[in-house]
Design a protein around this nucleic acid. Sequence first.
DNA 1: GTTGCGCAGATTTTT
DNA 2: TCTGCGCAAC
Length: 750
Amino acid sequence: MNLSHLNEAQREAVRQTEGPVMILAGAGSGKTRTLVSRVQYLLEEKKVSPFRILAVTFSNKAAREMRERIAQNSQVDFGAIQVTTFHSFCAKVLRQEAKYLGLSRNFTIYDTSESKSIAKAILARRGISQKEVSPFEILQYIDELKNLGFYLGCKDQETLDSFEMDDYFYEFFEEFESELHKSNAVDFGGLITGVLNLLENFPEVLERYQKRFHYILVDEYQDTNRAQFRLVKLLSEKKKNICVVGDEDQSIYSWRGADIRNILDFEKIFPDAKLIKLEQNYRSSKNIIEAASCVIAKNQHRKGKEMWTDNEQGEFIDLIECNDDKSEAEFVAKEVYRLTSQGVDPKEIAVFYRTNAQSRTIEDALRRLKIPYKVVAGIKFYERKEVKDLLAYMRCVVNDMDSLALSRIINTPTRGIGARTLRKLEDEAIKLDLSLWELINKTVDFPDDFKHLRLSSKVKSGLREFTHLIHEAKALEEQKKSPLDIYEKLRSESGYMEALRVEKSYESQGRMENLDELSSAISQYVSDESQASLVGFLESITLDTSGGDSEEPLSEVSLMTIHGSKGLEYYYVFVVGIEDTVFPSFQSMDGDEASMEEERRLFYVAMTRAMKKLYLCYAQGRMLWGSLRFNPPSRFIDEIPDDFYKVKPYRVKKKALESSKRKKYADFDDSDEFNQLNQFDDDVAEVSYVSSAPKVTSKYPVGSKIKHKLYGTGEVLEVDGFGVDEKVVIKFHDGARKKFLVKFAPIERV
DNA sequence: GTTGCGCAGATTTTT
DNA sequence: TCTGCGCAAC
């Protein structure tokens, strides 16, 4: 196989297929390219069956990218190769082996908000107010234990030593687990610890998986927690062909359980491990790489890599000093405007901030100049009430032990089953040791046995209708009917749609549209998946928050948190809010060196996203928590040697500013390049940009002909918003008009 | 069962 | 300053 497109270290990383290997891949060092080549090499040169390879990453995004790139470059049928996330992989194993743990294979996966509901229910049952103990604290504790790899019955001594079992919270852990188990449900952390449980306590299961996977690859290794580490270690124990790839300098998720020890101790745990460092950067200019290297060198806890690059020196980093957050945003917008008018494509530009709250001022400024942008953030579509409600219906159909889902929708839309009634039913279920679903069925089938509950006739008929619907849907599911059909049945026959229709409010209109989107999402799933099932759909949406991945890069400026920027790159990068207490955040300024180091890594990640030009902005004063605060420029700025950056004060020239004051700023007013920008009359700028901006924004301009997977062909009548919010109103051939979120709608131009 | 008020809290969020 | 949530009143 030809490896000439790789450098020496990368080639070694590809060829070193046997035994434990740790690849330390610096930012922009061609990591994915190397990994993909490595997989190809295994397939083509080593003639390894795709079935024998397991590649786990952390995010769906990364898994998707790797899968695509392997598919692109591979002649071998790679179909059987497992390239997935830790969580999907574990879900798959857990469904397969569910019986060992007393689960059924259609278990539900609870997301954070559902776990929170469980925690609340536990507190309520114990009569503890949420002020005494916050549900959040409980979840955090539970998460911590699971991140360490603990589960009920765990015998691993190292794990047991790593926390106190007599902790006040431990009882909550046990109760939480039993609650999940009763619901035939597993939370995120439980997916991992569940598999760990299987591997550690059922030798035949361990053997089966050890035999299957001869080559194991772990990407984003710096982000793995202890549980994942142990899992991978166990799986690879037989063949010992484990290859981990990571960068300790980009470890920014320790607060989610990522354990830096996994990297620092790798060689201790695998004494014969090969260590390969990818230190050549192909992404950024010398200036950026050298500046970033100086910053990260301040960290004590690292393996130590020396990044270098053959790229040109490049431009200075600009350090922009602004009066306040408003003018900071204004600077960003104007500079973006300047760049784009020089021909830079907006999609090559990104703005990063430490906290999501900072996006608003930036957005306002960009909107004012009519610059198209998108806020890259966790999509909240599946968190909307109506969507969650319908998902809960589907979950009941799939897993009737999911009492949380059941209680969510038993009275949605209202069927006269209020909180009191529900409480009564729940208590009775506990008394008879039945699931809520079983109990409800009994009350319907044998009303005489439940006279003591004094259920009203309204309640009884409500329950009857409800159980009837769920039973029918279950029957469809058993007949392997399409998830889409089941969804449509649930949504109409539950009365949910009708309830929204009679509401006739602006809001209910939007909700109905969202339910249309949900059906689009399902039809998308059905057409993508060869073995579509309701369980599969539900799993895919709880484990993949990224929403539709159909977005081709549009001509938009990207706005995101620095955490969100990991793994991405842009020609032009603006990092805003570089002030002490904002970045580094005040929580990490309490003297705890470890968290300060993590903030520094975060800063390092931000810097190394930039290819050509990096702007660091800070404001002298900033609206924070309701009042104007004055914070000093970030300490991280001091860590960049002077020769890499230029300080450029940005001052807004106010018309009212009298000439004496102007004189004061004469040095930059007349000399620096922002002066020219400030000469822009805002009005002129807006007008001239309006005409050109919308064109690049929409993939579906007004009047274009489209085809929708569900509704057939139609014509775009209106376009509203852009980016993730972009909506189109479409008139279909049958005359129907519908509004869609472009991001989700399965439409294409014809 | 819904609405509305008052108060506390306010990083980051791959799954 | 803003938001989200719990609780109280309709």
